[in-house]
Design a binder for these strands. Structure first.
Lengths: 202, 202
DNA sequence: ATTGGAATGGACTGATTGGTCCAGTTCGAA
DNA sequence: TTCGAACTGGACCAATCAGTCCATTCCAAT
């Protein structure tokens, strides 16, 4: 980061730029999003962009964090209270519902960037890994509370279950995006739910 | 396709170009792979490239198909005989082993292209969907044969199980790529295997 | 009112890009 | 041997790209 904004106005400008970049990247992908496109969409100038970001890669990393914030904020009501089977089911249903609304476009705002950034920008890969960690932590905490309440078997490992659940989300979203069919996520999440249920306390 | 090769020499040239493009795209991603890079790596000329491909997008679609061929060929010994629990387990283990060898780099040669192509090139999305269909079909046929042999319960749905399994692979590979940790795929596939086992005949 | 750091506008540049063009070569079939 | 289609080499181009630069404006604190 070249400069973090020192004033409220600066913060707004930076956010407008990141938001515009996130929008374009979500619609067309990283490759099809130029900095000129970004500043036009943001109503900003080149010097504003380079005032807040070292280079294009840093802007893209900011997009990853921004998208992760968005994703977690959208799921916050569910993720904050994953303490019953109904809550887990409702959370999963809401993920599918969102894909229906989006007409199965865009895939995961975080996951779909892995293929675009992870191999070419090591720092970008780390930001992606951090984003998944933030997401997985919420799931993990939910499952730990389930276990603490005696709803998960003693043999159940909340860490591995959280990883497997996040993988099901990501895989389901890839298939959803490629096939333009939200039902792909539904099938993946049904399996993930049943797998959790198989680890329920007797 | 501008022209499919009419001679053996032409076929070799086309394949050399697609192979070089696939290699570069796998290493650095679509955005960082220019046509000049491709022709240099392939030892070809611009006119050769444009003799066999309409434009850059068509070349990238050819890369998708090429990668799918590769993936299926690599798994052919396993996919062709998914008719026992040990065979399924061995197949999954081989997928993890491959990620260990690759040091968790590159992700899925097919799946990691979804985020890079699906939104910007509708034809590319279709080729990706076709690729997943080819892959899923093999899994599905394996599970159907398992059911025919009475190893899967009558209630088990091989179609949905195949989708869920493919989703686990894709999700596991995304997490593997982002975290540079093959164990992420192992955890996702352990869950997928247990889920299949939960659908075993009594 | 002055001042200085923060923020802004936008022209400019050198390099790279995808794509075009045409002259030349290869090679099997007649 | 000739002929034509398939194939090849690489110069060339206009457009676009990420990134630089500097003059100007804003604004809060003194």
């Amino acid at each position: 980061m070249v400069d973090s904004p020192k004033t409220a106005r600066g913060r707004e400008t930076r956010e407008r730029i990141v938001g515009a970049a996130a929008g374009l990247v979500g619609e067309r992908g990283v490759a099809e999003t130029s900095l000129d496109d970004v500043i036009e969409a943001a109503g900003a100038s080149k010097s504003q962009l380079y005032h807040y970001f070292e280079d294009r890669e840093e802007l893209l990393r900011a997009v990853v964090s921004h998208n992760c914030d968005d994703v977690l904020a959208a799921q916050a009501p569910h993720l904050g209270a994953l303490d019953s089977w109904t809550a887990i089911r409702a959370w999963m249903d809401s993920l599918v519902e969102l894909q229906v609304k989006r007409r199965a476009r865009g895939g995961c705002p975080v996951g779909s960037l892995v293929g675009q950034l992870a191999e070419s920008d090591e720092k970008g890969r780390q930001v992606l890994a951090d984003s998944f960690e933030r997401w997985e932590r919420e799931i993990r905490e939910g499952l730990r509370s389930m276990k603490a309440r005696g709803k998960l078997a003693r043999r159940a490992d909340p860490d591995e279950l959280a990883t497997a659940t996040l993988a099901a989300i990501q895989g389901g979203l890839i298939l959803t995006q490629a096939r333009r069919d939200p039902n792909q996520l539904a099938i993946a999440l049904d399996a993930a739910y049943e797998h959790l249920r198989a680890n329920a306390a007797q």
